[in-house]
Design a protein around this nucleic acid. Sequence first.
DNA 1: CACAATTAAGTTGTGCACAACTGGTTGGGG
DNA 2: CCCCAACCAGTTGTGCACAACTTAATTGTG
Lengths: 175, 175
Amino acid sequence: MHNWLGSKGYPLDMTPLQPAPAAEDDWLRLDHQICFSLHAASRAFNGVYRVILKDLGLTYPQYLVMLVLWERGELPVKKLGEHLRLDSGTLSPLLKRLEAAGLVRRERSARDERSVQVGLTEEGSALRERARQVPRRIAAATGCDVEEIRTLRERLDELTTALDAAALQEAPGCS
Amino acid sequence: MHNWLGSKGYPLDMTPLQPAPAAEDDWLRLDHQICFSLHAASRAFNGVYRVILKDLGLTYPQYLVMLVLWERGELPVKKLGEHLRLDSGTLSPLLKRLEAAGLVRRERSARDERSVQVGLTEEGSALRERARQVPRRIAAATGCDVEEIRTLRERLDELTTALDAAALQEAPGCS
DNA sequence: CACAATTAAGTTGTGCACAACTGGTTGGGG
DNA sequence: CCCCAACCAGTTGTGCACAACTTAATTGTG
């Protein structure tokens, strides 16, 4: 991990150099802040998970997959993708790696041979026990109490819903 | 773009199937929510930017680099990385692509040949004009007003600071 | 039944993030 | 003066995200 905090606290000081920027320049700066903040927060979270999950031999997206499997049990790749908002292009190689690690079992459905059922192996189920400590360590790392986390999560979910709707609007082919 | 909203509004319904989960299972679920929400929000943002930035021929991280250059002017790769929290492993190939696109100029500093100065080309500076419309479109996509965005950004920055600090604590080699 | 449209998973290619490493450059002790 | 530690950019390798495409199975309709 790099020492981004080398100088002092928060390394980003985007203080304006010009006295009174035009309205649009102001927007540009504000925009920088929100998109950048989210990007940075996501990567910071990823970094903490990376450290904590190293013991378990999982990456952050792999951990998300395992959480769904622990909670839901066996389910097809399609369903897994709907829960995680990921498509087969991302999940296929990821699941193959989990399979190679012996945590996951993949088998074609007999009833519909297009579908592949993903389930836990003995070892994959057992890993859940070792994963129980993870949430507490993450919560501690955020320095927030449960209520704060819940509020933030709700705001983020609202944002995601709005952004998804907007993406469909913005998508090419919408007159 | 995939139609993740196929069924209705928000596709994630992680309602518990068991009646009264143990405290640690509850933590596991809560944890799922926050880490997943942030992950999803980040990718949703990325998706909106992807659509909007396609006109400019920029990816989201490339746009972030250009924002810094527009605001700060010429600066070494190191400084650029500090502003964006990215290292040379990410920036070097990204900057080469921007250079190949004719937007950016890279040259070794004469005074310190370890350092590479990154600056805008004529074309790179000109692109700023076309980028002015971006923030408004993004803000519209979020469906939030300026104040809401500012509040969320502040929460995210706090979170990032806390997480970075925690990552250093968790890092191996800390007794 | 036949055949076109749809659906599921997988593959390919591009780009980003990051760890680990390489190769010059610089600057400070011995 | 020389060597070595620190430093900067770049390279390599792994994994994720996503668009575009392929392959195979299923479903619907004439």
